[in-house]
Design a binder for these strands. Structure first.
Lengths: 125, 125
DNA sequence: CACCGTTTTTAGAATTATTCTAAATTTATT
DNA sequence: AATAAATTTAGAATAATTCTAAAAACGGTG
């Protein structure tokens, strides 16, 4: 594990805010001002391949990175805001229903966050 | 509903292949050779807002578009290949577990497709 | 149907996210 | 220390998507 890899893993693992590559880059620069964005992508990809971090993609936004501890997500249909939620481990149930072994699963619940609900009302929808 | 919107909805709804905007563009050109890619994006975004089509994003790949009938997905961790699978409607169960109302949910099971399993073996992993 | 306001499309530039390439640097190995 | 292997850098390249302004199409009204 390289020094950048280590620090990036640390940043991603300890954040609960679903950071983009850009944000991770900014955070990493606090410690290593000379680092370059490509290095961040290199390391993120590596860490993801090795299952040390999780990648979360929401339609139409840049990929976000997340700690690996199993949990689910709530995504606002209006603004795309991402929030953690934990519905427990459904692996066994899903494998049974699917009739096959799976490596993991990714569950996103779509809702309308408070802000977006207000906006809807203002527009009379 | 405009003529392009109508045709795009038709293409997306009748395809089972999770087309990208580019592929939809190519398909649409069979009928309307003069159409432009921006029009495809405009319409896809509109149709998506209106819940007439579904958008599927897999980490690191362009967004894909899908018919709206409820179903789940199987994603290969190796190559990103996307396959339909149907685990039934879990809305009630998930709402209960989450303790809130949801608009919809998106469930992706991660696995290794046959091709990728073979590749892994070849590399001795 | 002629006019007017609204919506959609077009063309192409602009932006954003991400990857790639080749050289330089660092790290690990003999 | 010498060599090989992996990582980082810089910056160009690519890919996906959005934006902008102008043109065209559409819908209703008088």
């Amino acid at each position: 594990m390289t020094k950048y890899g280590k620090k990036i893993l640390e940043i991603v693992s300890s954040s609960r805010s679903h950071m983009t590559a850009e944000e991770i880059f900014e955070a990493l620069r606090q410690t290593y001002p000379a680092v370059v964005l490509a290095t961040v992508y290199n390391n993120l990809n590596r860490l993801w391949q090795e299952d040390l971090i999780r990648k979360v993609s929401v339609e139409g936004m840049p990929d976000r990175y997340d700690h690996i501890k199993r949990h689910d997500h709530l995504v606002c249909k209006g603004c795309g805001k991402l929030v953690d939620i934990d519905l427990g481990d459904l692996t066994a149930q899903l494998e049974k229903q699917a009739g096959m072994a799976i490596l993991s699963y990714d569950l996103k619940l779509t809702y309308l966050c408070e802000d977006c609900q207000k906006k809807m009302k203002r527009k009379g929808m």
